[in-house]
């Protein structure tokens, strides 16, 4: 009764996308990665493989998770050069930013990560996720604010799939709050993308906009 890898999902158009989410332990890094993986695997019928960092890089209170998304079965389980890097701590930025693929997407919690020299040749987006979460009354949902923001700026997955995955991944009593957090992050991201489009936006302009905000 075994089901082989190729029998688990239908082949979809989703291209191979490697994502790393990293931050402090306690920020909900792993849950953010689970939500992204679940959205792809369960709500979009694609393939997703998530792994957590258990190696030396995961010590000292840091936390990292990797998700690979694809329309085809995923054979090699580890992320080598992420297309998308989501960082929520300075340390995570220091460790992982150099591995980002050229032309990749860098998403940072802008109040927790100070970037003096943004890496060249990547798309860069900042969001004050902790502050937005605090506005909802609970700092703990910053990870889901990040996921909402991720949905708005990356377009890798359908926002609706990610929203369903959020609802599916938290206890019933926490659903409303987490969905608010998702929406808040999404709206912030959509607004940012809109402003970028109006300003003709390249990465440097995003940075300028963010520091003025």
């Amino acid at each position: 009764m075994q089901r082989g890898l190729s029998q688990l999902s239908h082949t979809t158009k989703l291209g191979l996308t490697e994502i790393r989410v990293a931050g402090f332990g306690g920020q909900g890094v792993i849950l953010a990665a689970i939500v992204i993986g679940k959205a792809a695997a369960i709500f979009e019928g694609a393939y997703a493989t998530m792994t957590q960092s258990f190696g030396p890089e995961a010590r000292g209170g840091s936390s990292a998770a990797q998700v690979i998304l694809s329309g085809e079965p995923i054979l090699y389980p580890y992320v080598t050069q992420p297309d998308i890097l989501v960082v929520m701590s300075q340390e995570a930025y220091a460790v992982f930013s150099k591995q980002l693929k050229p032309g990749g997407i860098l998403i940072v919690e802008q109040d927790l990560v100070r970037i003096d020299h943004p890496p060249q040749g990547v798309r860069f987006y900042g969001v004050p996720a902790t502050r937005l979460a605090e506005e909802l009354g609970r700092k703990v949902v910053l990870n889901i604010v990040m996921v909402g923001f991720f949905a708005a700026v990356t377009h890798v997955l359908e926002p609706d799939s990610l929203r369903k995955a959020v609802a599916d991944s938290v206890p019933p009593a926490m659903q409303k709050l987490n969905l608010q957090a998702f929406d808040k992050g999404f709206e912030y991201g959509a607004e940012l993308v809109h402003r970028m489009a109006e300003g003709g936006g390249d990465a440097e302009q995003v940075l300028t906009l963010e520091s003025e905000a």
Binding site: L8, S9, I34, G37, A41, I42, Y47, A48, T49, M50, T51, Q52, F54, I74, P77
Partner: peptide, 9 residues
Amino acid sequence: ECVGHMTEK
């Protein structure tokens, strides 16, 4: 460990 700790559908 890799199969034990990897998350999939």
